[in-house]
Nucleic acid binder design. Structure first.
Ligand SMILES: [Mn+2]
Ligand SMILES: [Mn+2]
Ligand SMILES: [Mn+2]
Ligand SMILES: [Mn+2]
Lengths: 219, 219
DNA sequence: TTTAATTTTTAGATTTGTCTAAATATTTTT
DNA sequence: AAAAATATTTAGACAAATCTAAAAATTAAA
């Protein structure tokens, strides 16, 4: 089934909202997509007629199995392109989302499978979000605090607990970015500080408090 | 100026037809784009109103300076993506056109400049067509005799010195076409003959005389 | 130089995705 | 439980890109 760019954007947005609330409602989707509620209703009818959506008038809606599968396909494309833009073209991870928003609609299956192979079948995008595989299965990644990461384990920065300017300043200084590969070399019992190696950076020391608030995927 | 996908496709097609005939006419563009003549007229009005086109009712049309510049920008994107698909993702050069037809409409300037750098600023796409630079200038490609092509260099058949029936018969037999990627694997000093690999053909031997009369773009 | 053939444009319709404003249904407050 | 507030849907309109069929202009033929 060939979907329009618009239909794909709606499906992806519904998927995202669904992961936060059971049933999605018209206004929240309208707000999310920055369109009118009337447009949402119009599209809901269309997606329902294409059997991608469970939809009961006035009572909210959800993607059904087929809809979810579609959403995961689009998310896969989006995140693979983001990974490409950052890892190969050396773009900054804050900038890649908008471009991936367009690239995700290029629909060749062969393209995406070859891109995936070329990138080394990455499991996490530059924002720390998991990349569904070719069957639409999200990899299960266990997230742990950096302080609990065993030594010498290859891990990837997945998130930080608070996005305050103070935290960002420090992360910036250390060259820590979501998606950066990281490895713990040594830990100091005295204050819980860690000596770590972050990809592309010289080795450095991170305080125990920071190590509690930085999370990684143990890969 | 932001152009729609449709507008971009029309501009590019007009550019291509223009390179063959001075003025383009409605029916030939309709045939080229496989649409109705009425649709062409509709779009011509639109492109004229956007000052990309010289257009006199019933008397044909041409892109103006701004229109040409736009066309070259789109062609640049198209050919860079084609190069990417073949050289990085290892797709076959016959298959990449349709995908590039979609990718070419992703409009980030930064994306294209980084892609260009990443690919090593290629000058020729996988079909042997030149890639305009970031200013829209088509590169002037140096053409050399196949016999002078260094080993293992990716080159593209650009022309043959004589188009006699005898020559054509031989080219046909070898599956040599303008635009075919070619690579020299080995040369024999004894008679100047070359072992070459032409895209999609099995390896073969070409005589020294033939190798003097076949020209390639060294990429 | 009329007439015929061809090309191009216009008129009017359709589909997709959007909007505003009004109507209707649901939920919350009194 | 009725009124008020909120959420959702419908009605009707619009712009973009397309189409078919008819009209008009140009070109070629008789
Ligand atoms: Mn998108
Ligand atoms: Mn992302
Ligand atoms: Mn295109
Ligand atoms: Mn090409």
């Amino acid at each position: 089934m060939k979907l329009s760019q618009s239909e794909e954007n709606y499906i992806k947005s519904i998927y995202n909202l669904q992961s936060k609330t059971e049933k999605v409602n018209t206004n929240s989707l309208a707000a999310f997509l920055d369109t009118s509620a009337a447009s949402i209703t119009d599209m809901l009818k269309k997606l329902k007629s294409k059997n991608l959506l469970e939809y009961k008038k006035y009572y909210g809606f959800r993607l059904n199995g087929a809809g979810n599968k579609q959403a995961l396909k689009i998310i896969r494309r989006h995140r693979l392109w983001e990974f490409f833009l950052v890892s190969k073209l050396d773009m900054e991870w804050e900038k890649v989302h908008d471009i991936a928003e367009e690239l995700e609609h290029v629909s060749s299956a062969e393209l995406i499978e070859k891109l995936d192979r070329y990138l080394g079948n990455p499991k996490i995008d530059p924002h720390g979000d998991p990349i569904p595989d070719e069957k639409g299965v999200m990899p299960v990644l266990k997230q742990i605090a950096l302080k609990d990461l065993p030594h010498k384990r290859n891990a990837v920065i997945s998130s930080v607990s608070s996005q305050t300017p103070q935290m960002m300043e420090m992360l910036n200084h250390y060259g820590i970015k979501i998606g950066s590969p990281i490895k713990v070399l040594k830990s100091f019992v005295f204050d819980g500080s860690l000596q770590v190696k972050i990809a592309k950076q010289p080795e450095c020391i991170i305080s125990g408090l920071a190590a509690q608030n930085i999370f990684v995927y143990d890969t």
